[in-house]
Amino acid sequence: MKDWLYEIRDAIKAFVRTVGELTLFFFSIAMYTPRTLVKRPGLVVKQVFNSGTMSMTIILTCGLFVGMVLGLQGFDTLQRFGAEEALGTFATLSLVKELGPVLTALLFAGRAGTALASEIGLMRATDQLAAMEMMAVDPVRRIVIPRFLGGVVAMPFLTAIFNMIAIFGAFLVGVTFMGVDQGAFWSQMHANVTVADVSQGVIKSLVFGVVASLLAVYQGYTSVPTAEGVGRATTRTVVTTAITVLILDYLLTATLIG
C-alpha cells in the first residue's frame, strides 16, 4: 500500500544525487579547462566546428522564419493600435532579450546536444572510454572538456547569428510585404533598443551555453553502456536542457530586469 510513497522517496533521492553529481562533474571540468585551452586548443576548435558551424543551417532557417512570423504577428497586433511603426522595436526587443537566447538554446540541444550525448554515450558503450583510462589518458580531459568548451564558445555566436537573421526576417515581412515605412522601422528601433537590452541577451546566451553543453556531456558520460542507455541519454539531454533553460530564463530575466 505504501509502495508509492517509497517510490516518491527514491525519486527525490535520485534527483538530489543527480544534482550533486552534476555539480561535481562541472567542477572537475572547470578545474582542467584552462590546461586544455592552453595545451590542446586544436581539440576545442574541432568541437566549435562540430557544435557551431554544423548548427548553422538549422539556426539560419529557423531564425529567418521566427523573424518572419514576428513580423507578421507583430504587424497584425500593432496595426490594431495604429502603431505599426513600432514593429522594428517590437521584433528586436523580443528577439535579443528573449526569443533569440531561448530558441537557440533549444535548437542547440536538439542539434548539437544530442550529437554530443550520443557520441560520448557510444564511446562509453563500446568501452572506448575505459580503453583510454587503461592508457592513462583521462577521458574527461581528452573527450569531455573539448566538447563542453566547443558548445560554450558556439552558443553566444549562434544566438547573435539567430538574432541578426531573424531581424532581417521581420524586416522582410514588415517592410517588404506589409508596407511598414523602412525609415520608421529602423529609427524607432534605434530610439528604443539600448545596449543594455543587447547585453542582457548576450549574458543569457553565455549562461545557456554552459548549461546546455554541460547537460549534454554529462548525460553522455553517465549513460548506461547499452544501446538503450545511449538512446535514453540522448532523450534526457533534450528534456533536461529544455526544462533547465526555461526555468533559468525566468530567473535570469527577473534578476537582470531587477
Binding site: A160, M164, V195
Partner: peptide
C-alpha cells in the same frame, strides 16, 4: 552578428 546587434539595432 554581435557587432551588427550592438551598433545597428541600438
Amino acid at each position: 552578428a554581435l557587432f551588427f546587434l550592438i551598433t545597428q539595432t541600438t
